[in-house]
């Protein structure tokens, strides 16, 4: 297939296809089924929360979508394109982003350099031997993202000197680099103070409308304020899907959340 046809295919796919579509995705680690027969459909611009107890398979789900692990079976479509066999960097270059539960940052670099590195990663300057000029567009984009996640005052601070909450904010900025189409947030609110949580909710609600995401969140309050639909997972399977209010009032979900792990 020649290149122009491919681009138009992809463009039309963007208009009509779902942002993310998982069909019968399973992941086995030896005999252990971390994910079993997962089917999820997320529309472009949709904001979805994934809830579930520890070990429900939420992070494994993210790892399969981003390609950190290859799914054992099933296929994954991103804006209509089958990405099941792609290596992680190819998926990222198509507009998919993620954050990590445990911050994975470059602690020896400044806040701005971390974000700059994320901007360069999805640009054509990845292999550039030339240092950025002062009016470099990617550097300007990095500066802009520093403001978006409220780190303006710490732009030149070394990441190792940031507070935990600020590191989480930086994680988000790195996921926002290079105009993403869809983002996976892995427990961005974990370990944050109530003030920092409010700030996080502000940042997420301030994202442009076309930017859909899936957020893993234990805190129902945060999840309900930033998501329009909810998927409940349990033991590697999807257990319930629906609007936040329905999920909250569902007796089975309440039993699962309040009554321990017997549900």
């Amino acid at each position: 297939m020649n290149a122009p046809a491919k681009v138009s295919d992809r463009l039309s796919a963007t208009g009509t296809a779902n942002a993310l579509e998982l069909r019968n995705v399973s992941k086995y680690f030896g005999a252990l089924a971390a994910l079993e027969d997962i089917n999820i459909t997320v529309r472009p611009g949709e904001r979805r929360a994934v809830l579930g107890s520890n070990g429900a398979g939420k992070t494994t789900l993210f790892n399969c979508v981003t390609g950190d692990f290859l799914a054992t079976t099933g296929n994954i479509r991103f804006f209509g394109e089958d990405i099941s066999e792609f290596p992680p960097h190819e998926r990222i270059r198509r507009g998919l982003r993620r954050t990590y539960q445990i911050s994975l940052l470059f602690t020896g670099l400044s806040v701005r350099d971390n974000i700059y590195l994320s901007c360069v990663g999805v640009s054509r300057r990845r292999f550039s031997f030339l240092r950025p000029r002062r009016d470099d567009a990617l550097m300007a984009a990095a500066d802009n993202l520093v403001d978006v996640v409220h780190l303006t005052d710490d732009r030149d601070t070394l990441v190792s000197n940031l507070s935990y909450g600020q590191q989480r904010q930086l994680e988000i900025a790195m996921a926002l680099a290079g105009a993403p189409r869809f983002i996976l947030f892995d427990e961005p609110a974990a370990g944050l103070s109530p003030t920092e949580r409010r700030e996080l909710v502000d940042i997420l609600n301030g994202l442009p409308g076309h930017m859909g995401y899936i957020i893993i969140e234990h805190d129902m309050d945060v999840a309900l304020r930033v998501a329009e639909s909810v998927t409940m997972m349990h033991n590697g399977r999807i257990f319930k899907e629906g609007k936040p209010a329905e999920i909250e009032e569902d007796p089975e979900v309440q039993a699962l959340y309040l009554g321990g792990d017997d549900g």
């Binding site: 992680p88 960097h89 990222i92 982003r97 990590y100 470059f106 590195l117 994320s118």
Partner: peptide
């Protein structure tokens, strides 16, 4: 792993 998640082919 982090660099792959930023779009770099390590």
């Amino acid at each position: 792993r982090r660099m792959s998640a930023l779009g770099y082919n390590a």
